[in-house]
Write a protein that binds this DNA or RNA. Structure first.
Length: 325
DNA sequence: ATAGGTCAAGCGAGG
DNA sequence: CCTCGCTTGACCTAT
């Protein structure tokens, strides 16, 4: 079924664009506006929770500022940075001296998002391996994921995949079928706040997880929706075309708008030798939605500027054309 | 103020 | 064996 969204100007569009973690415009302001204040281990050990609390208070204040900037620029899809709460797997938020303020900041930001129809998400790090054969690694992954679930709760976000916490399976260990079974077993150990929001993304390495493998190994077992990454699919297609893989991923979302990632290769953009999986600053091609209604997070180094540029290249142009016709 | 080296965690790919 | 890439450049010290 084809759904059409109407934006404020009354134009039709079937892709909502967003970006990840950093607003480059605001982070170059003085004083800078960022949610990415963090610290190295030595500083964490030396300064402890009071300093952590101080940074999180600033980060959470700035989250609201970024969302306000997004609202002013018509961007309603945003992936939050896990750096917003540095070292959060090592303490409980309630232990922080500024906890009340932090909770309040989170609530303000989350309520702003709800009030203006913004969709927020997380993408916890590559170190988060729920499929690991090593129990200690799994325990760390569970703690880290549950921190993200807790933050989504503090943000008053729904306990469903609108407020997604997206990860990769984390490792195939040469036996992907066995490893994704282990992933499913460990999924049960997560908190409700996390389980209800968790999604899985296809990998960019051919010995890891394609959309089809995620579908068979995790969606059919647990109902976990699949985030389709256009760029990754090029390196791990699992025998499917882009269209087929996107359709399959989109079918896992029920009544929630499917979330996708889109990026392009830096070596092509810059005409240099580099890893083909490294991301470009901007994106240059029109994203094919194959007639689906999608939320697409641009993974481009220029961040929000890449969203604005994409719109200039494609959406404004289309609107202009439509007005002519 | 800025440059340069360094930085929690896991895994897989490539040299 | 080492480095890179990944959710992301930011932190910290010396100058």
């Amino acid at each position: 079924m084809f759904c059409v969204k109407i934006n404020k100007k009354g134009a039709t569009m079937s892709i909502r664009l967003g970006y990840a973690c950093i607003n480059s415009t605001l982070s170059s302001h003085k004083p800078r506006v960022t949610t990415n204040r963090t610290m190295i281990k030595r500083t964490f050990l030396a300064k402890g929770l009071p300093y952590v609390s101080e940074l999180i208070e600033k980060n959470t204040e700035d989250l609201l500022k970024i969302l306000q900037w997004n609202e002013e620029h018509g961007i309603t899809l945003f992936r939050m940075s896990s750096d917003i709460t540095p070292w959060a797997s090592k303490y409980r938020f309630e232990e922080l001296p500024g906890y009340e303020k932090i909770l309040s900041n989170f609530q303000k930001a989350g309520n702003f998002a709800l009030a203006h129809g913004h969709r927020l998400s997380f993408h916890p790090g590559a170190f988060c391996c729920l499929a690991s054969p090593r129990e200690k690694v799994v325990q760390n992954a569970i703690i880290d994921l549950n921190v993200h679930g807790k933050i989504m709760d503090m943000l008053n976000q729904p306990r469903d995949h609108n407020a997604k916490i997206n990860i990769h399976v984390g490792g195939a260990y040469g036996e992907p079928t066995v490893s994704i079974e282990r992933f499913c077993k460990n999924f049960d150990r997560l908190s409700e706040a996390t389980k209800t929001r968790l999604t899985l993304e296809n990998d960019d390495k051919k010995n890891m997880y394609s959309v089809k493998m995620l579908y068979e190994g995790a969606y059919k077992v647990l109902g976990i929706p699949i985030v389709f990454d256009y760029h990754h699919h090029k390196f791990c297609a699992g025998g499917m075309s882009e269209h087929e893989a996107l359709e399959m991923a989109a079918s896992t979302w029920g009544n929630i708008i499917p979330n996708c990632h889109y990026s392009e290769s830096q070596c092509i953009e810059k005409n240099i030798k580099c890893s083909p999986t490294a991301h470009s600053d901007y994106v240059y091609n029109k994203i094919n939605d194959y007639g689906l209604n999608l939320d697409v997070c641009l993974e481009a180094k220029a961040k929000e500027l890449a969203v604005l540029k994409y719109r200039e290249m494609f959406e404004n142009h289309e609107i202009a054309l439509r007005n002519v016709v």
